[in-house]
């Protein structure tokens, strides 16, 4: 589905030098797979996601989605950001309808579909609220509904629950899995929480400290549907978490 080929990204710095953010990343993600990208802050996780989204061009290498090279954003890849990035001048309904209208859907159909999505993310009754009137968790639900609205087959989620409190966060994780189990979108999920990555994913990709390279890819063989309360006492889950934690803690890595 997604194939990332020998991708590198360097940024020009203010001092005129060049800063390597990502180095030689190759990764294939199958259709319907849930893959998390894990790594210390600044290792290039967001950058990788932005390149797959087509928002930022790579310095070398390429991304293909179903065989076609990515040259820019497209409705097949829907982003969800940590900062929600909702349109403040639009209501909840307006935000969720946005993509459908951009896709040329008739207003009536767009509204019906948007209302259904809003109900699905448990925000019925908040259609006419502005984003500023919602809590962080509610905002992120709106953002997810806004992205799901135009039917992307791939979700690109950049620490989507990073700004939420722990309780809201686990709730949102379950909701996301429910949605995912239902229509099996391909998900590329950036996080720096090992537990979150293990709980959600089929595979976890661990990146090294800057510049980000792939350090290891772990397959998470845990049965689905998963419930957090059950997994917490599951030995296999604990083993995965500990193993990946250790990887991240590698003293050879804690240099710069």
């Amino acid at each position: 589905m997604i194939s990332i080929e020998r991708l590198s990204k360097a940024f020009d710095t203010a001092r005129g030098t060049s800063h390597l953010a990502l180095s030689d990343i190759s990764l294939d993600v199958a259709g319907g797979e849930f893959v998390s990208i894990l790594g210390p802050s600044g290792c290039g996780k967001s950058t990788l996601l932005y390149i797959v989204g087509g928002f930022v061009p790579p310095s070398s290498g390429a991304v293909r989605v179903q065989g076609a090279a990515v040259t820019g954003p497209g409705p097949d890849r829907g982003p969800v950001f940590q900062e929600f990035a909702l349109f403040p001048w639009k209501t909840v309904l307006g935000n969720v309808m946005y993509g459908l209208l951009e896709q040329g859907a008739p207003k009536k159909i767009a509204e019906d579909r948007a209302r259904a999505l809003i109900e699905m993310v448990h925000l019925k009754g908040y259609e006419n609220f502005y984003p500023k009137e919602l809590s962080g968790g509610m905002k992120q639900r709106v953002a997810i509904a806004r992205t799901l609205a135009y039917g992307p087959s791939i979700l690109l989620m950049d620490e989507p629950f990073g700004a939420l409190d722990a309780h809201t966060r686990t709730g949102m994780q379950h909701e996301l899995l429910e949605i995912w189990e239902r229509d099996r979108k391909t998900v590329l999920f950036v996080t720096h929480s090992v537990e979150e990555a293990v709980f959600l994913s089929d595979r976890v990709v661990v990146l090294t400290r800057s510049p980000g390279r792939i350090k290891e890819i772990s397959r998470i063989d845990l049965p689905r549907p998963r419930r957090r309360a059950e997994l917490l006492v599951d030995r296999r889950y604990q083993d995965y978490v500990v193993a990946i934690e250790k990887l991240m803690d590698d003293p050879a890595e804690v240099r710069a």
Binding site: Y50, G53, F55, G72, P73, G74, P75, R77, G78, P79, F81, E83, A85, F87, Y98, G99, E102, Q103, A143, R146, T147, Y150, P152
Partner: peptide
């Protein structure tokens, strides 16, 4: 303006 606002719109086909 935050890039992510534009990106959200661009991904939706704008």
């Amino acid at each position: 303006v935050d890039n992510k606002l534009v990106w959200s719109a661009r991904a939706a086909g704008c």
